[in-house]
Amino acid sequence: MSKAEEKEKTENAEKHEWEPKIVGFLCRWCSYAGADLAGSSRIEYPPNVRVIRVPCSGRVNPLHVLRAFRKGADAVLVAGCHPGDCHYSEGNYYARRRLDVLKELLEFIGIEPERFRLEWCSASEARRFADVITEVTGQVKKLGPLNPKENKNG
């Protein structure tokens, strides 16, 4: 990107509303399917979430979440099946236990708790999926970028 382009981009960004980057880890059985259903049902929601399909919310290592923040995510969402509905019986319970701890750690290191969400969203909850994305995007927009000046490659 040339310097002129870069300058133009900054100007554009100032002109336009700032758009947060949200990384979403979606379990393939429930939440990813719920996101698909939101599509089939043509429910519009903000385009800020970048989806990573995982087999289960229990697959998500807290380090994956931390990496996303380190690389410049303004928010991270992990979504899985409702408690009791996990395709693998109990993966979402492990996710809940692990990621609740992570949430406290994030707060401790200065990342607002609103920037990290663990949500349950079933394959039939298209509306709920869209609502969650809308809500998270709105919240993060209010908070603004996470450490805007920090070096992303760190």
Binding site: V54, P55, C56, G58, R59, V60, N61, H87, Y88, E90, G91, Y94, A95, R98
Partner: peptide, 10 residues
Amino acid sequence: CQGCGACAAA
């Protein structure tokens, strides 16, 4: 193994 990945995260 059914590939849930719980062990990988644990």
